[in-house]
Nucleic acid binder design. Sequence first.
DNA 1: CAAGAAACTGGGAGCGCTTCCAGTCCGTCC
DNA 2: GGACGGACTGGAAGCGCTCCCAGTTTCTTG
Lengths: 343, 343
Amino acid sequence: MDTAPPDRSPTLDDVAERAGVSRSVASRAINNVGNVSAPKRVAVQRAVRELGYVPNPSARALATNRVGAVVLAVATDEPGIFADAFFAQVIYGISVALEPTDFTLTLVLAGRPEGRAKLQQIVRSRRADGIMLMNLHGDDPLTRLAEQTTVPVVFGGRPLRGEPRWYVDTDNRGGARLATEHLIEAGHRRIATITGPLSLDVAESRHRGFRDAMAVAELPATRVEHADFSEAGGAAAMTRLLRAHPDLDAVFAASDNMAAGALRVLRAHGRAVPGDVGVVGFDDLPTAQHTDPQLTTVHQPVRALGAEMTRMLLSILDGARPTPLILPTRLVARGSTRTPVPG
Amino acid sequence: MDTAPPDRSPTLDDVAERAGVSRSVASRAINNVGNVSAPKRVAVQRAVRELGYVPNPSARALATNRVGAVVLAVATDEPGIFADAFFAQVIYGISVALEPTDFTLTLVLAGRPEGRAKLQQIVRSRRADGIMLMNLHGDDPLTRLAEQTTVPVVFGGRPLRGEPRWYVDTDNRGGARLATEHLIEAGHRRIATITGPLSLDVAESRHRGFRDAMAVAELPATRVEHADFSEAGGAAAMTRLLRAHPDLDAVFAASDNMAAGALRVLRAHGRAVPGDVGVVGFDDLPTAQHTDPQLTTVHQPVRALGAEMTRMLLSILDGARPTPLILPTRLVARGSTRTPVPG
DNA sequence: CAAGAAACTGGGAGCGCTTCCAGTCCGTCC
DNA sequence: GGACGGACTGGAAGCGCTCCCAGTTTCTTG
């Protein structure tokens, strides 16, 4: 009889014919659903191997209404934000978590209007089975996406307003408290902070953690400047802080990048770190080890964040209804703070 | 008559019915292919709008054998490599270039065996119309993927051996020459270099550029240590260099990260930068502005790299047969080198 | 040993779209 | 005025897969 033409990739029918079974049986054998006798199953497996058969995802998607893809949407406009190591780490975590499955990762930068439109399109046309959404600002219209759509959405980091049904976040508040307590224990009293944009929950939470710790120690949390999580922004904020509060003896910056900027300005002003001023960052990006002195900072498990978001989304697709997850942070003491004084 | 049930998203048939035309005409109108009279075209467009119709990509893919997705595969194992800002920038460039099209970006980390298998799977099952492949080591079996498969492959950076048909690269050799010449012009003579892993064309080319410039100036290019592009690797290499060549008065590090490591070691050894030792990096990542002193480095247009790869791939899918593209680099003089002495 | 249950099989009807092609409807030209 | 050509239309055949369901085979069990 005729054998499959070599210029066409084999279809399920080819496999079935070669294995001497019907297409249905072949399908069931391949998808490991029940009702296939052992010998036929083996025959199908052999045929698959011999033919080098790979199922056609489009056909499968059309038939099952599941496409085998999840999307990571990052709602950031500025290339600067996306370009830092943070998202690369998240992506790495997602990617590894996806490996054992046969889901595929679609990446959408949903900062600019074009990107957002694209995300809408992807969702509405069901090009993805689920969504991971990150970096939403407080009033982002994308939050509504989660309600409008039928595909499940997992948030990376809480949006500022409204608790989404599913999210994974790091313990920003606790981490910031840790950082501030570390400074207090090292004997600092006039502690300033540089926050991120307060329209972001991350920034808001870290600021709250700072105030928590200060309140407990009965210290004033009034030395505050706001910035945008960037190095340049951190530098500018530090400059303002020095002008407004020349007496400050420590700074908690809500990101490593801002801390790096602060470090630069402090040096330019002749303030020794950690001698005159202690500095703590947040994130523990690679940057933190490249500054001088190396940065004491709060480590957040970024890869795990990606991995856990993925796991959560997959479990939802699998019918589970998980609860939100908060990942722990920990302090990494390096050169930009003094060792805490005992007692 | 009955209207489309609200719980099912509208199909082409719904559109056709509402517009009072046949499915074929609706399809043609939507895809802007000929043979549709103006009034029917308008009617279809209206129906699309009113129904909020979005074509089902799976069905379309099944019928046309084009899926509307391209994949970016990054052949890196170590999280450290992927996690730096470089790939984030590339992705940003790709993403922006993809926005005006309706292609989607699928990301695959093809470093670990699982990831590579996944890439194979994606390609063989035609889950993507084209591939962008980055960071291949010299002997990477993935190079063969480009030959085995029928979907076009665009390389980001040449693989070490064998000139692929389509690639976009930065002028690594020229950039390294620039860097080295800069050091020479600043009066340095005992110039060392820290290379990347020479199984990577990037590393090899940058090393060659270094030797080019040294040869032209008739200086010995013998102060060489190899590392892995990482900060820690750069630091270790710098330590070895100082031991083997204590007289060195400048270093060209083939990446900013390695340069940052070198800076750290130089400081620890009491060598002033740029007073005692001039340092130049390569890449111009954000890191380069956070070091102390800020790093003189070779800027490469990373976002453009991503964008150009994308453009090239899309043009190929469109039937074009473009030629490889080499992107220019330029020197960015900052604090880690002295101003060149005139004459 | 018969009868009912359980396990297995494969035909066939879609999933939503594109596209070929045979047919219809005009306007035009000799 | 009839025939011809071009513009347009829509029926129908897939694309490759899943899954329902009716039918068949095999195994229990009283």
